[in-house]
């Protein structure tokens, strides 16, 4: 638990806060990319190399690009002139603060019961591959089906409707 942890935590949380507070939607998309990168660094620091690189590939490589495309298609790239927060923003912030207070209280209360520093687990990508096609083969197939269905569904939903087709 060294300086590196605090640096990555500051990077990630700064990205998240920027998403929450910035006015321009494109800036928000860039800030969320920073937060995703910080989380990938967290995964790498937690000796979960596979999850870290999957995070970089899926979130920074795909989700961030998809978000930027959606912003451009919906012409949200210009800074909005009006209010960017909803009218009931105070309630939303209060709920979020309450949830954080609850989580923080739970973590601090269980602080002594949590395990201490342990040796890095010796897990290789070969182990993960074996687990994916062995014990977790059914979830893997379900996720494959889900991704196919989601891709087809997203294309159909976003496809341009012809006049009078409704």
């Amino acid at each position: 638990m060294g300086v590196l942890f605090y640096l990555i935590a500051a990077l990630t949380l700064a990205g998240g806060l920027a998403v929450l507070l910035l006015k321009n939607t494109v800036h928000c998309a860039l800030a969320v990319t920073v937060a995703f990168a910080g989380l990938a660094l967290f995964f790498l620091q937690l000796d979960a190399q596979f999850a870290g690189f999957a995070q970089i590939l899926v979130y920074i490589g795909a989700v961030a690009i998809l978000v930027v495309f959606a912003i451009l298609v919906t012409r949200g790239s210009t800074t909005p002139v009006g209010q960017v927060f909803s009218e009931s923003w105070l309630v939303g912030v209060a709920i979020a603060a309450g949830v954080f207070a609850l989580f923080g209280w739970a973590v601090l209360e269980s602080g002594r019961a949590l395990p201490h520093e342990s040796a890095a687990p010796a897990v290789t990508v070969r182990d993960i591959g074996n687990a994916l096609v062995g014990r977790y083969v059914l979830p893997l197939e379900i996720v494959a089906l889900l991704l196919t269905a989601a891709t087809i569904g997203a294309v159909i939903v976003a496809m341009h409707e012809k006049e009078g087709s409704k």
């Binding site: 960017v84 909803s86 939303g92 912030v93 979020a96 949830v99 923080g104 973590v107 949590l114």
Partner: peptide, 22 residues
Amino acid sequence: AAYLMVAALLFAIGLAGALTRR
């Protein structure tokens, strides 16, 4: 516990974003 606190903070930020942005 430190990782859990960071995750809790990030969750709260995401929740606030989901509830307050237009």
